[in-house]
Design a protein around this nucleic acid. Structure first.
Lengths: 198, 198
DNA sequence: CTTTGATCTGAACGGATGTTCAGATAAACC
DNA sequence: GGTTTATCTGAACATCCGTTCAGATCAAAG
């Protein structure tokens, strides 16, 4: 046998990435073989190499795509004018909503950093820093406006992102709290954590 | 060759666990072979099986030991009397100090959960819940005392722990901030995030 | 309908994997 | 000093790994 019925790169390509993301998130990069990814797609292992030069690049491209979509989505949604307080609320709600909607990619992008080559690691790490810097800028603006009391904007940005990303470890659709309620709980904490009068 | 000079289980046993923890933290459980652990200890792979029945148990025992030491250390340090506010400050500072002093074990205990068998996973997850419950109890006490405004103590506990554990991703000894300064920054955020008047 | 190019199979490569075990040697004990 | 026991080696087992590639087959173009 060889080329199979209905085979088309526009279909198989995305399915390879979906299968890889799903399996990497569930079992980890090192524990997932190319043969397992291929099996999930319904193809032989060799066929995957029409879509990626190697396993490492497959992982890296998944992470890069996720980080770039994260940045692009925030840049598209970030309020143009308004107070730093309003921007911080927007960021908080955006981060929770975006990350819970892509739990697999978020998980992989954090857990599999050590499985990247040094070059690839640096690229992903740079994108992560870009994202943190977006929040840091909001905090600095709030301090300048006299509304926030934040002695260490960089560290506070990382702390808040860690807190918000933690939602992914317990949140489940159809749980006790809706996403809107979760957003409210976390925004309440974020707001108070950086507020001037406490 | 066979038994080597100076060989003794009291020495080799701890070295096996140290090497495994170190390598698991650096490269991940699945990416570390028994032969690599053995090489780090300076022994052949077969010798490891004098110290663990299998690789899975080696991972599990590292995680269990870490979680039990964490709980024991907090229970030994937790203030007996005093306000909830004082207990929360003690918890905050304890968590940062303990976790930064054992970054490898913390990392492994979080990252390698998916590589545990279901039974082992449930045990570690139970210990994690125990720890979260310690913080949750402090928050509930603060609410009862009228000092904290926390609508969701369980979720807030998880959020605060996620934020505090995040210190490990960036903190380095001999960095710009001392551990005491880091503690102060985080305690400032925690205090305000749960405070009544904000 | 024929040709061309994209897509996939199936087999193969060398090497790494976790685990077992008989046998060898050093340490501990009498 | 002799015996016992703990500790380790070295080889072996079947299985899996990422990757390559010639050849087969289907889809698309003319």
């Amino acid at each position: 046998m060889a080329r199979t019925q209905g085979s088309h790169s526009d279909i198989t390509g995305p399915r390879v990435r979906e299968a890889a993301l799903h399996l990497f998130a569930q079992h980890g990069y090192a524990a997932v073989s190319m043969r397992k990814i291929a099996a999930e797609v319904g193809v032989q292992a060799g066929a995957l190499y029409n879509y990626t030069p190697d396993k490492q690049t497959l992982l890296f491209e998944l992470m890069r795509a996720h980080m770039e979509e994260l940045l692009a989505a925030w840049d598209a949604r970030a309020p143009a004018g308004g107070t730093a307080q309003a921007a911080l609320e927007a960021f908080t709600r955006f981060h929770i909503r975006f990350n819970t909607s892509r739990a697999g990619a978020v998980f992989v992008s954090y857990m599999e950093l050590r499985n990247l080559t040094p070059e690839n690691f640096n690229i992903i790490e740079g994108l992560r820093r870009d994202y943190e810097t977006r929040l840091e800028a909001i905090l600095r603006r709030g301090v300048a406006e006299g509304r926030f009391a934040v002695a260490e904007p960089r560290i506070t940005a990382m702390a808040l992102i860690a807190m918000l990303t933690g939602v992914n470890t317990w949140f489940r659709e159809r749980g006790r709290l809706s996403l809107a309620e979760v957003e409210a709980v976390y925004w309440d904490m974020v707001r108070r954590a950086v507020a001037n009068q406490g």
